[in-house]
Design a protein around this nucleic acid. Sequence first.
DNA 1: AAAATTCTCAACCGCATGCAT
DNA 2: GATGCATGCGGTTGAGAATTT
Length: 325
Amino acid sequence: MGRSPCCDKVGLKKGPWTPEEDQKLLAYIQEHGHGSWRLQRCGKSCRLRWTNYLRPDIKRGKFSLQEEQTIIQLHALLGNRWSAIASHLPKRTDNEIKNYWNTHLKKRLVKMGIDPTTHKPKNHALGCTHPTKDLANLSHMAQWESARLEAEARIVHILKVWQGTWARAPTTSNRIKDVNISFFNQLESPTSILNFSDNTIAAVGMAAMVHENSSSFNNNNCVGKMGCSLYGDDQEEGKGIMENSPAISMHDHVSPSSSTCCNNIYGAAADSLRFPSFMDGFAAADLHLLPPHDHSGNALFEENKINYWSNILNVVNSPMGSPVF
DNA sequence: AAAATTCTCAACCGCATGCAT
DNA sequence: GATGCATGCGGTTGAGAATTT
C-alpha cells in the first residue's frame, strides 16, 4: 500500500478553482465520465471539486430546520461519521454537513449547555444524573441504531454468501429468480450500510418471502422464515435476529393471509425505513406511535411523525438550561 | 472610513483501504 | 509480499466575506 503522491507532484496547480478550470473539468467529465481524474490538477483535487461542488445533484444554500435536526440527531447516534450522515441527507455532501456542524450546530449546542460530542447536558456529563425522558429516548435511539447497524452488517454478510449460492444454484421458479435478480441489483455499490438498509431491508423481506412461496404464513412463522432465509437454516435464530431488528419488527401488523402478510410487511418495512428511517423506528418504538396499517394510506403515521418532529423542535428550541436529549 | 475580529466554507492534508501489477 | 495508484474519509487550514469596534 503506497501513499498517494497527490498534489505534491511538480507542475500541478493547487488552491482555489477558477471558473475556467471548472469548465475544463466539466468538459472533461462530459467526455470521459467521472472516473479518470487526470488534468493539470491532481486527481484527488479534481474528484473533490466534482463531488463537493460541480456535481449537478448537489443542493446548495441554507440548511432547512429539518435538515438541521436530522444532522443533530444523526450526529448523536453516529458521531463524526459525516459520510454516513450525508447518506441520510439527499443532495448534501459530507463536507458541507461537516462544515455546517462545525460552524453552526456545534456552537449552538454549546451555547445551550450541551456537550456537542456526547449530546448530553454539560452538568449531566459531570455526574449530575437526572436523566430526562429525552435523554432516555436518545439512549434508546442509540441502542436501536446500534442494533440495526449490527443486524444490517450481518445481512450484508449473509447476502453476499447467499448471492453466491443463487448464482451457482438457479431456482426452478422464474418468478423467484426475477425477484432475486432485482433484489440483488439494489445491493450494488451501497454508499454506506445506512444507505443500503433504507433501500433494501424491505426487499430482503420480500425476497425471502417469495422464496418461501408459502400461502400459510402466520405472524411468527413469517418473521421466523424471513430470518431463516436470511440467516441460514436455524429458523429460531433467524426469528430472533429479525425480531430484534427494529427495522423489521413489524410482525404485529401481519395478518394470516399470505398476500396480506406480504403487503403488510412490505408496507410496514417501507414505512419504518423511510427517510429518516431511524427516526421512525425511534418514534415507533419509544413513543408507541407505530400506527396500524389500514391500507387506506399513512395519514396517521405521517401525523405521528409530525408530532415527533414537533417534539424534537420543542426540545431543541427550549430555553437555555432546559434538559435537551 | 479603517482596522480588527469573527465567520464561512472550499480546498487541502494525512491516513486507511482496495486493487492491479 | 512489495509497490504504486485510486478512492474514501475525517480533520484542519486559510483566504475572502461579513461584522464589530
